[in-house]
Amino acid sequence: MLRMILVRLALTVPILFGVSIIAFGLMRALPGDFVLAAAGTTAVSDEVLAVTRRNLGLDRPIWEQYGIWLGNALAGDLGTSFATKKSVVSELLPRLAVTAELTLMAGLLAMLMGATTGLASARLRGRTDWVVRGLNSLLLAVPNFVVATLIVLLFGLYFPTIGIFNYVPFARDPLGNIGSLLLPALSLALTVSVTVSENTRAAVLEVSSQDYVMVARAKGLLARTILGNYLVKNALTPVITVTGLQLAALLGGSILIETIFTIPGMGQYLFDSVSRRDYPVIQAIVLVSSTIVLLMNVLVDIAYARVDARVSYD
């Protein structure tokens, strides 16, 4: 088991390395632009540019710059924001926490909705199956930013008193915080819930046709015992795995959702930084979120392997 974890982590290292090269290279694709953005304005003298270039170490060879950047990143220093002149890490961390909360809520909602509809679809079959699958196709076609826009529109028109743009920090009011994230999490969760639902359906159908379910029926067990101990217990693993692998989609979607609902998370930070051309921040966010997604995938793999060892017949 430990060996498997180590091997899996070791396989991730070269990918992380590649990711860091892309995250670094992207922002240096237009070197002149980088200096101009760092200097803050476009109308600066050559001397100022030269000083900026030297301060940022841009006069060194590119691979050396990368080495320094990577070294700092590994030591927990992701550079300084061009816009605020503050350390990126100190600005990113609180926002990352907000995004993590939003993503987690959305993930839980998606799993709840998806597992329920998928289970109903697979067990009740017939019309229920038809309705659920039809609705799923439709839901999948509605992008999360459209959902969010429509939610904002509906609430703005019919419930103007509910301030849906009022993000409440967790420290001030935990319950209010969760309440203020509920609608954003819902709009983020809908598309992902379709994936969970479809996979739950497939998993339950797959498990239903297994011999051990037939054995359970031959034992005369009650329907609810079979459902809980035989069907759900076995179908749960693939469902959790799939939800875990949707993290990338959730993180990507949170950029849009946070911007629409004005939630001070990582997504909005990225959006602001893009419009300010705050390259160190963009670099940092690309690196951090890819790392999180990669590590999450490793975690899912490990969790799956743990269960798979029990499932595999050797």
Partner: peptide, 13 residues
């Protein structure tokens, strides 16, 4: 008693 003992037991119990 069924044919395939490999598939007839619930793997998670």
């Amino acid at each position: 008693v069924f044919q395939d003992p490999m598939a007839s037991l619930n793997p998670v119990m």
